[in-house]
Design a binder for these strands. Sequence first.
DNA 1: GTCTACCGTGGAAGCGGTTCCATCAACCAT
DNA 2: ATGGTTGATGGAACCGCTTCCACGGTAGAC
Lengths: 325, 325
Amino acid sequence: MATILDVAARAGVGVGTVSRVLNESSAVSATTRQLVLTAIEELGYQPSSLARNLSLGRSSSVFVVAPILTSPAVTTRLRGVLEALSLTGLDPILLEVANEEQSRDRFRRIAERGRAEGAVVIDLRPSPAESAVLLRAGTRCVFVGQDVEGWPSAWADEAHGTRIATEHLIGLGHRRIAYVGEPQSIAASRRRLRGFNSAVTAADFETDGALVISRADSEAAVGGILDAGRPPSAVVAGSDWRAITVLAEARRRGMRVPDDLSVIGFDGSDLARHIGLTTIGQQLAESGRWAVESLLALIAGSEAVPRHRLRLDLIEGETTGPCGT
Amino acid sequence: MATILDVAARAGVGVGTVSRVLNESSAVSATTRQLVLTAIEELGYQPSSLARNLSLGRSSSVFVVAPILTSPAVTTRLRGVLEALSLTGLDPILLEVANEEQSRDRFRRIAERGRAEGAVVIDLRPSPAESAVLLRAGTRCVFVGQDVEGWPSAWADEAHGTRIATEHLIGLGHRRIAYVGEPQSIAASRRRLRGFNSAVTAADFETDGALVISRADSEAAVGGILDAGRPPSAVVAGSDWRAITVLAEARRRGMRVPDDLSVIGFDGSDLARHIGLTTIGQQLAESGRWAVESLLALIAGSEAVPRHRLRLDLIEGETTGPCGT
DNA sequence: GTCTACCGTGGAAGCGGTTCCATCAACCAT
DNA sequence: ATGGTTGATGGAACCGCTTCCACGGTAGAC
């Protein structure tokens, strides 16, 4: 493979001149420039980005850390990040987190110096110890989907979101409302459940613990609720992904949505839009773009720690309707 | 930031020795090693992977090119790739392709030398010109989801897949079967439609062109079919993503699945499994892992051009059932 | 007691760029 | 004619690591 030295030799100029032509960094006479360009052409020369980066002392890539890509909320957010990043010339190195161990590994990874200019972390949070390590290492890091103390982050008031969702159903006349969420081990899902509870309490309904599901095996549990003597007329789901579980269970039972059962999701993912699921939109793609912008500012030297509250909107699809009974 | 020179100075040894300790490349006496390790510890030294890679003449990353991440088939495949890659120490640089222009850009990008060791390309194919450029540049490249002439690729016999799907429905007694696919501009979707047609022809049914949809606006068109005087009793979808469109349209009309309408998808994505969609599995995650293995072989110097036919299986969910009428 | 072998080690060269500094020619003003 | 600019250019130094080669010292063989 040809190097810049080969090009310089062939064009009969110095390496400095070739570099200047390559980067248009300072004036080069038209004739010399042409000489260099033909030499480049003839040799099929391509500059080594590796060498360039070392010399410049940057990596031109950023880490993007995300939970396992199954959930549509994650992929939608990720798309926002990728889209914004592709306009910057920074390459995204994608690190997926499938379990606790990988989470630790990824946080250790992004604290390493040099490999990347910074990191965008989606829907994950560091432990206090990890946060301290990142801080000490001077890692430039932005969080989306989680409010991480002391770090740039964009997040939504999730309790408020499920409250809106629940109130929407109450407004439609529903009185027996179930909640189906992710396991309570995740902080975000605790917040979401809290919003549901507060809305139900405020409306002064009978609260029925049996109607609340938030554990790993919710598929089976959802079936249990729907088959019970007094099934709910509506379900608030803790995520769009959970919502389609509920839709699937309803379908298996020949229940009609929204006539027999109203279902509302949470996230405003691509998937929700695609199937007309009523949901709480939390500006997923926008939040990804915001993260990239904030990271760029950090890289440019900004000391600010921007914190961004994401707007929540009810997105009405066709899976919620007035209570039949 | 401390460099290897600082460490060497502090430990009172030469840089070579520090490097040897770092890489355990050759014998270092226990006392010297300890000296170096404490110096590293005290300085908080971290080696620069950039410099290391330049010196070693490798990049320790690979490109992963994928269409826009909306479709669950893509993300499922991608997960297989990421999972396999995370075991290798190679970092995935994710390049998303949202349109024709980006496709050209990405193929140009992966042909650049040095930035990555190779590329895994998901569900996309290069034009002959692009393929030639890749070949000339000596790019190590593996394709999944597309059979690309002259390149390592893993793909499924898609026509066969839709044939299996259609025959499954016929076996359940369905006679009026619709097809809902992606636009015919995509080669893969042409193959899928062909399989459907051949199964219908073989079964010697009345063929009804009005029951075949394969264009961009299929959502609306699906509704048209379901509302028609003689709606189909079953639908073959060209992908899982299309299948859930059909499910959504059925739900809007209060149709029960599978009682009023059977729906079968194509891909065997995470989503299909999650909602119990009957589909044609094409080993998505496995194909991603296969791609990584093949790429590793290429990087290791293999000259072979492995070509891998993916197995197709009917995955029975709960969205297909015997014909009611 | 000398010779060879080998182990541990220091340090220079090299990976392929960028950039700074010195040089030189051409041009302008005095 | 002379000094001062200015613009284009060559090339050394440097980015931070790996690796090869040379060297000194110890130990085993004779």
